[in-house]
Simulated scan of single mutants.
Amino acid sequence: MSRTETTLAVVSILFCGAIFGFFYAWVCSTMWGLDATDPRVAIAAMQAMNGSVRNAVFFPAFFLTPVVLAVTATVFFLRRRKVPAGWFVAAALVYLVFGLFLTMSVNVPMNEALAVIAVPDDIEAARTIWQDYSERWQFWNQVRTVASGLSLALAAIALVQGGRA
């Protein structure tokens, strides 16, 4: 592999790994912690986290992962390295559909709906709001976690395939 191909492949894997790790952390710690606390605190905390995630640090991993994968695929394809190019395309499509588009069409609207809810003083009312939100949100987060993990695996396969003569 050329230096350009190697660099792009590694950067693609780093981007996939960053977004996979972000989604995975929500699965195995953040949401479990919120579910275990007072639902009024969980609602307020989730509102704060959702408000803070729109930042320059999160942006590249979330929005640019499919771009980096597509650029990498294009370079491999133009160099007549169709097998690794195909794996990078597959990684980009999986993340694009089941990571980015899923988030924008399901999780973000859920987050926006939660953002406008005033945290109720009544713990039972808060518990109902939180349980309705958390269960559905976690299901879709698990889908995007698996998808981003699959994208990472596909990019790794592409790297291995690209390293073969």
Rank of each mutant, 00 (worst) to 15 (best):
A25P: 00
W26Y: 15
T30C: 06
T30A: 13
M31L: 12
W32P: 11
G33T: 10
G33W: 03
L34R: 11
L34K: 13
L34P: 12
D35N: 09
T37Y: 13
T37F: 13
D38C: 13
P39M: 12
A42V: 02
A42S: 13
I43A: 07
M46V: 08
Q47Y: 09
A48E: 14
A48C: 11
M49D: 08
N50C: 08
N50V: 12
G51M: 11
V53Y: 10
N55P: 05
A56M: 07
V57P: 10
V57T: 11
F58G: 04
P60Q: 03
A61K: 00
A61D: 12
F63C: 10
L64P: 00
T65R: 02
T65A: 05
T65H: 07
T65Q: 05
T65I: 09
P66F: 06
L69C: 07
L69N: 01
L69E: 07
A70N: 01
T72Y: 03
T72F: 01
T72M: 07
A73C: 07
T74W: 14
T74F: 14
V75C: 04
V75F: 08
V75A: 08
F76Y: 15
F76I: 09
F76R: 08
F76A: 10
F77W: 15
L78F: 10
R79Q: 14
R79G: 11
K82E: 05
V83Q: 08
P84E: 10
P84C: 10
A85W: 12
A85F: 11
G86T: 11
W87H: 03
V89P: 08
A91L: 04
A92H: 00
L93K: 04
L93E: 04
L93T: 15
V94G: 08
V94H: 01
Y95G: 05
L96C: 09
F98T: 03
L100M: 07
L100A: 01
L100N: 02
L102N: 10
T103E: 06
M104I: 12
M104Y: 04
M104N: 11
S105K: 01
N107K: 05
N107R: 01
V108D: 03
V108C: 01
V108A: 05
P109N: 02
M110F: 06
M110P: 07
N111L: 02
E112I: 06
A113M: 04
L114H: 00
